[in-house]
Amino acid sequence: MKLFVLGASGLVGGAFAEAATRAGHHIIGTVGNFPGPVSGVDELLPLDLTDEAAVTASILQAKPAAIINAAAISEPAKCDDDLALSQKLNVALPALAARLAQQLGARFIHLSSEQVFAGDRPPYAVTDPVAPINTYARQKVDSEKLVHAAAPKLAVTVRAPLLMGNSPAGKRSLHERLLADWAASKTPILYTDEFRQTCTAQNLAAALLELCTRPEITGVFHWAGAELLSRLELGIRIRTHFRLPESTAPLKPTDRAANPKAAASRQANLALDLRPLSQLLKTPVQTFAQQLATLTVPPHLSTWLASTQQSSRA
């Protein structure tokens, strides 16, 4: 099956390409300015995703069986920094891709976010009303509405959580950012009272790939891991997994009360009810221990980590 991946050089897009290639599919992936190869992508397209004419021509020429939208500006602060760009990538792009999917009769898989909820009334079911509290979340809400209006019988939206996993550049996921901070002698500040239900990009990709072959499943769904953990606990468990001493890999606990301005645009608790998708798919929901077992060290940090681990054993 020919699959067109928007954002193939990103965390989820890269994981999806690898999983789909292992399953025997042909992958066409947009990679923007990403300089390196992307494992699993058969045809690399250095496409500007804000160029609607170029995106349209590429998708119509490819005639894929499914379009997977894994492209986004996913950091809320960056959405605020460049509202015009984030609006194009987070709202206009998925709306365009859904219209093209409808035109081609192609399956459309759209990646959304847990952040569509306010975080004050967990756990959240797919039927609960959305209440976005930052620009990124509002854009995701808008994208969901436009996608399902454009391709109601072809589209499925998956709201994903804070992601673990291994990215093509080794700089995108939670453990990669923490390791990079520690390697640079920085102390990450992590909240004790913010809770997330992480999963790996690889596990999410497996679910998205399965959805490509399940056209009877349409609408909006949730996917995440099995456990709800504080951001501080996530950091501690990642540090322990990589056998790093606290002296070398420090963490600074804080709480929302200490940062009221920041807390106003950050959700306190984004626990998700994974039904009914967890009951419909064969892809398993992973525990946090299972997620940790899949993590690798980014190549540019491997020498630092090996040296640090050796020093801690001396």
Rank of each mutant, 00 (worst) to 15 (best):
L174R: 06
K171M: 10
E233Y: 03
I189Y: 10
P250E: 08
A264K: 15
I238Q: 11
A180F: 06
R256I: 01
P260A: 07
N269Y: 01
T254L: 10
T254S: 13
V220S: 06
L272M: 14
A205G: 15
A184L: 12
G235H: 00
A201N: 08
R172D: 12
T240A: 15
S265P: 09
L204Y: 05
R214S: 07
L228N: 12
R237M: 09
E216V: 00
R214F: 04
L204R: 11
A180M: 07
P253N: 11
A201I: 04
I217F: 09
C212T: 09
L272Q: 04
R196Q: 05
T187C: 12
S185F: 08
T213L: 14
A169T: 04
V220T: 14
H222F: 03
R266L: 13
D273N: 12
A271C: 11
G235V: 00
S247R: 11
T248L: 15
R239D: 03
G225A: 07
G235N: 05
A207P: 01
Q202R: 13
T254D: 13
D273L: 12
R177E: 11
L211R: 05
P276I: 09
R172N: 15
T240L: 15
P215V: 00
L280I: 11
L228S: 05
H241G: 09
L277P: 07
K252I: 02
I236H: 12
R266W: 13
E216I: 00
D273F: 07
K186A: 09
P188L: 10
L174W: 08
L244A: 04
S230Q: 00
D273T: 05
A169R: 15
L208T: 07
F195A: 06
A184D: 12
L270P: 01
K171W: 05
P245L: 11
N269K: 06
L208W: 08
R231L: 09
L208P: 05
S247I: 02
S173W: 02
P253Q: 10
E210G: 04
A268K: 13
S185L: 12
T200C: 11
A262W: 13
K261L: 15
A271S: 09
Q279W: 09
S278G: 06
Q197P: 03
H222T: 01
P245A: 08
R214M: 07
L178T: 02
R256E: 03
L232T: 01
L179D: 01
S173L: 08
T240Y: 12
A262D: 12
G219V: 02
A180P: 01
L174N: 06
I217D: 01
P215W: 01
D193T: 00
K252W: 14
A268F: 01
A262I: 09
P245Q: 05
D181W: 07
A268R: 14
R172W: 07
H222Q: 03
A206S: 13
T213N: 14
C199F: 08
P250C: 04
L209F: 05
P250T: 03
I238K: 10
I236F: 09
A258R: 14
L270F: 07
